[in-house]
């Protein structure tokens, strides 16, 4: 039987964000926005959902007097992503 896919990751934008964050140490909100071509509002909502599930950490700070939002994947997020990839492979076979 196929494993159930994580509903939190099985959506285009959240999966794109997690795929980027799993490949880098940390990324700024603006970087994620550029790479995913998402709107700021939509991206904020989806990041919050990932944060609520403890898949990512969001750090807000100021750099050169400008607000900066840094996102980083957590070990829980990494594990969830690995499980998702494992599950999705079974669907593709």
């Amino acid at each position: 039987m196929f494993k159930d896919l994580d509903p939190l990751l099985h959506s285009q934008l959240r999966l794109a964000v997690i795929s980027i964050l799993v490949s880098v140490k940390e990324a700024e909100f603006t970087y994620l926005k550029e790479e995913t071509n998402a709107t700021a509002g939509n991206l904020s909502v989806q990041l919050q959902k990932l944060k609520d599930a403890e898949y990512i950490e969001i750090e807000k700070k100021f750099s050169n007097n400008y607000p900066q939002t840094l996102c980083k994947i957590t070990p829980i997020g990494t594990k969830a992503f690995a499980n998702y990839v494992k599950a999705i492979k079974q669907y593709i076979k």
Binding site: L5, H10, S11, Q12, L13, R14, L15, A16, T36, N37, A38, N42, V45, Q46, I88, K89, Y91, I92
Partner: peptide, 12 residues
């Protein structure tokens, strides 16, 4: 990019 469900191939 929008918030929508995708199939397995699209995910991959």
């Amino acid at each position: 990019m929008e918030e929508r469900e995708i199939d397995a191939n699209q995910s991959f």
